[in-house]
Design a binder for these strands. Structure first.
Lengths: 150, 150
DNA sequence: GCAACTTGCTCAAGTTGCTTGCCTATCAGG
DNA sequence: CCTGATAGGCAAGCAACTTGAGCAAGTTGC
């Protein structure tokens, strides 16, 4: 295997390991904070809805799934009290999915859990390098798939 | 949201985006090279088998799934000619799963695809920073889950 | 050297998150 | 108004995983 290929494979493995570890840590933290009926996938929907709500179609595009799948996910969130469907102000076909207070509380819990998970990393690399790493990553794959897959 | 939390969330999103983009690019590259009957998950099994083979139990641990699931995956790889089961030299209960020549060819294709996908990134950041990024990532989550999840 | 437990693997059945296919309601353009 | 496109929901099916049970081979303790 050429050196270039070895670097690429190592990068891939490390990316997946870090992404997986962070996702798992956030998920665990959210669970510990009392939200034990959600999967990581829901968090990505929350993030998309946080700013003024989103339609099912928008959520589907954001998550990289079909509209039907996104609709089922919203059904679940609605049944569990994290989100609710409201009529869309501009389009009678569409329905705006917005977070409930419980949904916003869960979002805050996720942010705290994320901070807790990342804190030891800042200790490992130093905060400067961690910020640089975050920025570099952002340049590599802007708009990459935010796909759960667990 | 506190600044610390914002950094943590941004890091998470960027990690997932980069990991997802790279995984998708490798998968596409492997597909283009003629291996169109595999999913990304299989690649992780290949990587574990590459060095002398692995048992089903080892694969299960590596992939983070049950032994039954790993066994099904091996069934599939065997049916498609990428791997084969051989008696384990030291333990008559166990069976050693090893790559066939076709499996090794696919592994090489994946390495080439990974190098192709990463090359533009080296152009973006410079090779030094890319190596530093890879090394930093490796320190963050050593032994993190190498889980497919697509 | 035999009984009791553990480990490696497989078969079978059930769950689930997603898909494809089809349908209605609404919008936008001529 | 029609015509086509878009938002969403209903239903059925699928595919990757799970839990549960069982057999063969290894390991431990007396």
């Amino acid at each position: 295997m050429k050196d270039e290929e070895a670097l690429a494979m190592a990068l891939g493995v490390n990316l997946l390991a870090a992404a997986g570890a962070l996702t798992a840590a956030i998920h665990d933290g959210v669970l510990v904070r009392g939200f034990d009926d959600l999967r990581p996938a829901h968090g990505f929907a929350f993030a998309r809805m946080a700013a003024g709500g989103a339609t099912v179609t928008e959520l589907a595009a954001h998550l990289g799934v079909t509209r039907q799948a996104a609709g089922q996910l919203v059904d679940e969130l609605e049944a569990k009290g994290y989100a609710e469907r409201r009529p869309h102000p501009d389009d009678a076909r569409a329905r705006l999915v917005v977070l409930t207070e419980r949904g916003r509380a869960c979002t805050r819990a996720a942010e705290q859990a994320a901070a807790d998970a990342v804190r030891p990393w800042a200790g490992l690399l130093g905060e400067d390098r961690l910020r640089a790493l975050t920025a570099d990553l952002g340049r590599l794959a802007p708009g990459g798939p935010v796909r759960p897959t667990w």
